[in-house]
Design a binder for these strands. Sequence first.
DNA 1: TTAATAATTGAACCATCGTTCAATTCTACA
DNA 2: TGTAGAATTGAACGATGGTTCAATTATTAA
Lengths: 209, 209
Amino acid sequence: MVQLLNNRSNSGDRVRRRAEGRRQEILRAAARVFRRRGFDTAGMREIAEEADLSPGNLYHYFNGKHEILYFCQDRALDTMLNALDRSGTCAGTVADRLTFVLTAHVRCILDDMEGAAAHLAVDALPGELRGHIVAKRDRYESGVRKLVEEGGQNGEFQVREPVIITRAILGSLNWTAQWFDPEGRKAPGDVAEIIAAYLIRGLKGDTRA
Amino acid sequence: MVQLLNNRSNSGDRVRRRAEGRRQEILRAAARVFRRRGFDTAGMREIAEEADLSPGNLYHYFNGKHEILYFCQDRALDTMLNALDRSGTCAGTVADRLTFVLTAHVRCILDDMEGAAAHLAVDALPGELRGHIVAKRDRYESGVRKLVEEGGQNGEFQVREPVIITRAILGSLNWTAQWFDPEGRKAPGDVAEIIAAYLIRGLKGDTRA
DNA sequence: TTAATAATTGAACCATCGTTCAATTCTACA
DNA sequence: TGTAGAATTGAACGATGGTTCAATTATTAA
């Protein structure tokens, strides 16, 4: 009896893992479509087709299109917040740590396998879902800004408007989704390094002045 | 008779000027709605309401939503190309000229009265309309890149990847539409100056290296 | 093997949106 | 003043897209 219950619990776990796997598949398919089309013109039928399901099946796993977007952005932000956290354990200068964060940001956005959606506007999300994403995004932005300010405090950077400069930096990174060509000559990692190096040089200032 | 014909010609001019004025009103209203909502979720009813017209009336002046977007972007790009052209007559360094162009770019995007739409993707435009806008956008981007390269050639800048760096710059500028708060403490001109200065510092490099 | 439940399908439903249209009003001209 | 044509209205139309649903299939457990 106990064994049977244990067996049921084990198969329950397997069923749950299969359902969770299906959710992740749908999220990856959705992120690819969101990146290709933008949220507003990405359709549920196209997402379903991309995930090899029927449109109605999406609603077995999610409460609707907004929730799919929510989880896509949540996942992308987790990836970025993770990189931000790991930068704290990096040896090296603040510039090194910021490089780590900025390159991870670009990789996340341009990732063809995962097809991040973090660069998409949160306006499309309703009420409470939006609140969660905005809070996470603000934590990430705040973390990046703190690195910028920390560099200012230890003399590596000269920045008088960290809020605006941090947004200028993030804007540059996010806009890569608009122009990056997966078939192009540069890999995402290369683009990430080039842009990060340039953006950080702008923080270091012109020592000749 | 000749006088009557002349009078008719004069009133014909007035009628045409009034029609053209109406078109400009509609374009400004549309640009505000496009900026607020994005092209895809901006509706013709909302544009009509913003312009104090009925929805059907829009079609008296334009062939459809796509054409309205086309003219909005065309106008914004004309403003930016104009700034680029005028920068050629500027006295001063390449950095001065680039500052002029970048600040004009940001002002254009954040302009509350004109509500530019140049940062919007061109994907929404069909065939030939898109071709025209892409060509103009490419001319503008090419012009900005030539300034970046010119600074590299005369020693003001150190840039090894001008294509990517130019896109990083334009991305930073375009993204300001996402976060700029018209009710905020900074005016568009201030934001433009701060961001342009930072982006150009990144071009100048780290002379300590 | 059977029954219960989950997963899946794909068409239908309803709301929305771009666009058209018949009717009305306005303007310009004779 | 009357007429022709432009401008305008706002509802209707057809297409689209998010979502629901009845029916079917698959899976799991007894």
